[in-house]
Design a protein around this nucleic acid. Structure first.
Length: 586
DNA sequence: ACAAGGACTTAGTATTCTGTTT
DNA sequence: AAACAGAATACTAAGTCCTTGT
């Protein structure tokens, strides 16, 4: 499939146009021997962050009330802080401590001996300068803005694409992350640390031997050039906060990402075939003599039922304290033999990925409840709930149950199956298109809730809700007016009985209908938005829902695909849009 | 068997773009 | 033309899971 697609695309890029392209889905993804990701790879290397531009002389930094001229290096780091001055981060103790420590490392020995207390540093002038700058940027003339746009386009054209196996592919992140202050999420012990500037000497280039190897910037050298076709990345470097590796990789629309995505959903569909067996198995295991097996079975039950993440162990003090299923601690759950008329309720309260809170009260089966009581016996709140279990034990077990099965497949499977089933349940054939789309969004929302995909309510939420409401009110009045007009036109027509007044009645009728439709659309919009206040639909749409389900649904109900997927999403899911027919079953 | 390293997916937020209203 | 709102995109952190080395 991807072979066909890419061939037709690349020919079109050369300026040709087919009369029509028939695409035949192939069953197998990979044309390569095990582990080989490509045969040819050529690219231009990364784009580096622009060099630091020192502040103009009139922008001052004050220490202890006195003007102080900073060395270039110290000044650069100071500007990072100044740019964040309005942010809550800069009031947090850990942030300030980490920042100050790293800032001092960049100072001259003179500066170091003078600047000993962050509270005595006054960045406000610098901050004002940056605010003025960004204001000025907004006020730029059309021509100036166009110039910047053109330059960005040139950069994208030159560095934003690579050639992988005869096909020109878009690169996802060809720009190297600029230096700045690290902003972790949640209560991160490293917040405020200096993210250092990445130089060509830090960069490993990956490309094929027979390609044109990208040239480092003048006067610089790459750290290494390698030719590893068992990986998909083009560029990598080691970041200084966690010491982890960062990569430049291809866009989701690329063959290599698309195939992988497809494969992911095929694995989840294989799970569909054996999930009943697996569920029976873990139910049996709740009774096992071995504690390890019981813990594994209860954890798997949570992963399946609640779509929890696996929960790898994390190094203490290196990251925010967050957990997943296997790393749950005793303090994260409460057992209620009875709660609000329900039996055996488990109350979950913990911080998951990105420090997003997971809070849920779930009635569970009696056996699970009894097991949990057992696991919690004689333990402190900070002890592991599943002390005989970790993700590698769990995944090894899953591998035995089904080839390619890991904990995260359950999330994909449950998300996709929920969407499919919710769509079946919620779609009303008699609804018009906006109402059907509302149903789609509700199905999507059910998944987002299952996966606990949250967002901060937009700052302007209340206001925009009020705006919408006043629009609705106005529309209602308009409708009342139109109805009145229709009524009088009807009465008029009854008296006069001529063609002209009949026509007037018809047109008034149409107007009423039109306004009714508009009103309904607005009301649907309001409901949708209200229900979506704290829920993020994007993540599940992009990562968990088999796109073929959505495509099939659109085809079945005659919904234009553009109503469900925007341009980027259509590019990512091109394979599914072409492949799925209206009878597709996940 | 276990820890560290490596590669890749998933995640929420910040910024920019675009179209509309004032 | 400015202001605004919502959508789209950019950004990069934070997970999962596999591989490698001891």
């Amino acid at each position: 499939y991807f072979e066909c697609l890419n061939t037709s695309l690349s020919l079109m890029q050369q300026g040709f146009k087919w009369k029509h392209v028939f695409r035949t889905p192939l069953i197998s993804c990979s044309r390569y021997p095990e582990g080989i990701k490509w045969k040819f790879l050529e690219h231009k290397g990364p784009v580096f962050a622009p060099p630091y531009e020192p502040l103009p002389e009139n922008v001052k930094f004050y220490y202890d009330g006195k003007v102080m001229k900073l060395s270039t290096k110290a000044e650069e780091v100071a500007t990072f802080f100044a740019k964040m001055l309005d942010h809550e981060y800069t009031t947090k103790e850990i942030f300030r401590k980490n920042f100050f420590k790293d800032w001092r490392k960049e100072m001259t020995s003179e500066e170091k001996s003078t600047i000993t207390n962050l509270s005595k540093c006054d960045f406000t002038h610098m901050s004002q300068y940056f605010k003025a700058q960004s204001e000025a940027r907004k006020q730029m003339s059309k021509e100036e803005k166009q110039k910047i746009k053109d330059e960005n386009e040139r950069l994208l054209k030159e560095y934003g694409y690579c050639v992988m196996d005869n096909h020109k592919e878009r690169i996802a992140n060809f720009k190297i992350e600029p230096p700045g202050l690290f902003r972790g999420r949640g209560n991160h012990p490293k917040m405020g640390m200096l993210k250092r500037r990445i130089m060509p000497e830090d960069i490993i280039i990956n490309c094929s031997k027979d390609s044109k190897i990208p040239a480092p910037p003048p006067g610089h050298k790459w750290k290494e050039v390698r030719h590893d076709n068992k990986v998909t990345w083009l560029v990598s470097w080691t970041e200084n906060i966690q010491g982890s590796i960062k990569y430049i990789m291809l866009n989701p629309s690329s063959r290599i990402k698309g195939e992988k995505d497809w494969q992911k959903y095929e694995t989840a569909r294989r799970l569909k075939k054996c999930v009943d067996k697996i569920r029976n198995q873990y139910r049996e295991d709740w009774k096992s003599k071995e504690m390890k097996v019981r813990q594994r079975a209860v954890a798997l039950y949570f992963i399946d039922k609640l779509a929890l993440r696996a929960g790898n162990e994390k190094e203490e003090g290196e990251t925010a304290d967050t957990v997943g299923c296997c790393s749950l601690r005793v303090e994260h759950i409460k057992l209620h033999p009875e709660l609000d008329g329900q039996e055996y309720v488990v109350e979950f309260d913990f911080l998951g990925k990105d420090s997003i809170r997971y809070y849920n009260k779930v009635p569970v089966e009696k056996r699970v409840f009894k097991n949990l009581q057992l696991f919690m016996e004689n333990k402190q709140p900070e002890d592991d709930l599943f002390d005989r279990l970790n993700t590698s034990i769990l995944n090894k077990h899953l591998q035995d149950l089904m080839e390619g099965l890991t904990a995260k497949v359950f999330r994909t499977y449950n998300a996709s199956i929920t969407l499919q089933q919710q769509l079946k349940e919620l779609t009303n054939p008699d609804d018009n298109i906006p109402a059907k789309i509302l149903s789609y969004n509700r199905a999507n929302r059910a998944v987002a809730i299952l996966c606990n995909h949250q967002r901060a309510p937009p700052k302007t939420f209340e206001k925009s809700m009020m705006n919408l409401q006043s629009k609705i009110d106005a529309k209602k009045e308009q409708l009342a007016d139109a109805r009145r007009e229709l009524k009088s036109a009807k009465a008029d027509a009854k008296v006069r009985r001529d063609e002209k007044s009949k026509k007037t009645v018809e047109s008034k009728k149409k107007a009423v209908q039109r306004i009714e439709e508009q009103l309904m659309k607005l009301e649907v919009q309001a409901t949708d938005r209200e229900e979506n206040k704290q829920i993020a639909l994007g993540t599940s749409k992009l990562n968990y829902l088999d796109p073929r389900i959505s495509v099939a649904w659109c085809k079945k109900w005659g919904i234009p695909i553009e109503k469900i997927y925007n341009k980027t999403q259509r590019e990512k899911f091109a394979w599914a849009i072409d492949m799925a027919e209206e009878d597709y079953e996940f």
